[in-house]
Simulated assay, not measured.
Amino acid sequence: MELVEERPELLEKVEVLWVDSGYDGDKFALAVWLMIQAHVEVIRRTDKEFEVLPKRWVVERTFGW
Rank of each mutant, 00 (worst) to 15 (best):
L3V: 14
L3D: 15
V4R: 00
V4D: 03
V4L: 04
E6P: 15
E6W: 03
R7I: 10
P8W: 03
E9H: 15
E9G: 13
E9N: 14
E9F: 08
L10N: 04
L10T: 09
L10Y: 01
L10P: 13
L11Q: 02
L11A: 02
E12Q: 12
E12M: 09
E12R: 06
V14R: 00
V14D: 00
E15C: 04
E15Y: 02
E15I: 02
E15T: 06
V16N: 10
V16F: 05
V16Q: 09
V16K: 14
V16D: 03
L17E: 02
L17V: 15
L17C: 06
D20P: 15
D20Q: 08
D20N: 14
Y23A: 09
D24A: 06
D24L: 07
D24T: 13
D24V: 09
G25Y: 13
D26R: 12
D26N: 13
D26T: 15
D26F: 14
K27N: 08
F28A: 03
A29G: 09
A29K: 15
L30D: 07
A31G: 07
A31N: 10
A31H: 11
A31F: 13
A31V: 02
V32N: 00
V32P: 00
V32R: 01
V32E: 02
W33V: 01
W33E: 14
L34Q: 12
M35V: 03
M35C: 05
M35W: 00
I36H: 00
I36M: 02
Q37A: 12
A38P: 01
H39G: 11
H39E: 15
V40D: 02
V40L: 01
V42R: 07
V42I: 14
I43S: 06
I43D: 05
I43E: 10
R44A: 08
R44Q: 12
R44E: 14
R45I: 08
R45Q: 09
T46I: 14
T46A: 10
T46H: 13
D47M: 08
K48S: 05
E49Y: 08
F50G: 04
F50K: 12
E51K: 15
V52P: 00
V52N: 09
L53P: 05
L53Y: 05
L53H: 05
L53Q: 15
P54W: 05
K55G: 01
R56D: 04
R56P: 00
R56H: 11
W57D: 08
W57R: 10
W57K: 07
V58W: 04
V58A: 09
V58K: 07
V58P: 00
E60V: 03
E60P: 07
E60L: 01
E60A: 03
R61D: 00
R61M: 01
R61E: 01
R61S: 05
T62Y: 10
F63C: 03
F63K: 01
G64E: 04
G64C: 10
G64Q: 11
G64L: 06
W65K: 02
